[in-house]
Design a protein around this nucleic acid. Sequence first.
DNA 1: TACAAATGTTCTACTTTAGTTCTTTTTGAA
DNA 2: TTCAAAAAGAACTAAAGTAGAACATTTGTA
Lengths: 217, 217
Amino acid sequence: MLTPKQYKLLMFIDNTIKETGCCPSFEEMKGAVGIKSKSGIHALIEELVEREFIRKLPHKARALEVLKIPRFKPRDIIEEEKKIKLALQNSSAQIPLYGKIAAGTPIEAIAYENETVSVPFDLVTRGDFYALRIEGESMIEAGIMDGDLAIIKRADVAENGQIVVALVDNSEATLKIWQKKENEIWLKPCNKDYEIRKLHPSQVKIQGILNGIIRKY
Amino acid sequence: MLTPKQYKLLMFIDNTIKETGCCPSFEEMKGAVGIKSKSGIHALIEELVEREFIRKLPHKARALEVLKIPRFKPRDIIEEEKKIKLALQNSSAQIPLYGKIAAGTPIEAIAYENETVSVPFDLVTRGDFYALRIEGESMIEAGIMDGDLAIIKRADVAENGQIVVALVDNSEATLKIWQKKENEIWLKPCNKDYEIRKLHPSQVKIQGILNGIIRKY
DNA sequence: TACAAATGTTCTACTTTAGTTCTTTTTGAA
DNA sequence: TTCAAAAAGAACTAAAGTAGAACATTTGTA
């Protein structure tokens, strides 16, 4: 029926009119179809007019009207759409990178930073995630190294033994193993050189649970 | 169908009539469309009349009637298309997962396994990559834990100190620190409980260099 | 009614954007 | 290799948009 280029162009014109209300110019079509010269667009349009897929108001600029859309897509287009579907499935998610963790500021305070990182989807399934850059060696025995990217799932409760982002005294965010005792919270590092911090429950707030690590050499 | 200015004007007229109940004057349209002369508005209106988007009552002021508005796509479809575009941009790379590393088979032997994993693009820039599942604790002091996913860049040479996938005696693949001595190759584990392996260069072949680690909790 | 203010129309001149036509180059298949 | 189709590019023509002024009409009200 139509060649892939013709089909692509026709769909682009139809889409643009439906989205923006106005007809694209040849220059805009060039980019959409992947042709570098207006004359190519001109030829395609003439063919589409001849086959009565579009109509031109003569001697007018930006005056095309789509008359019909073919029922069948060219084979190449179908292939391409399959690829897009695949890409959607395997696409990575964008999650915000909130900054470094180890000392200092609570996470909310730096949330304004607009940086994001992309992570594989299977690391961030359900829930709300963010990323933190690890600073320091306090979790080194858990295989969490200085400079690693920690993928955190937003949460405010955790089970004993989970690695959490804990906000202490509303001022210091830190990544530690969570252990709730009778009247205390223990924040356990994974490094013999560091000591367990024992805190009153009112001093500690969970800001997320460690969900994954990404390291780049 | 319409040029951008024509569309803008049409929407402004339609909106104003719907909001205030009466047709805007040319003077008002000037401001809305961003034109400094009424003659421009006049020309636009003539175009819109010719294309039958509006109708003029002749010899009347403020007497325009909107006949039709270019139809729009439903909002959710536009959203979906945006998502697809974004997904395409941020899509992660698919690299083959060749199996576990620590013991046993050389990597080629299991390359037929058709499993892939998706990793963020910034982990796999230039080159040919594959992934291995870490088995064992021999690199634990480098923060590489049992079960981690190692992202390997295919290579056959390495610099001293780099972590490489080494194939020993054509039968055993292992992840170790590479150290080339005068007449020997040292494969250094990162675990005090394991010993350095000292091998003749002919016994060892590099199969890749560690490029990243992904861990999922 | 008659006038002034508001509104719309027409004209000229010019700039920018868009579309057409032609020639050359590239590409891919016979 | 050769040929034809597709694409790129340049040169050209046409349309759209900008601007200002002069002019014509309508409209409200003095």
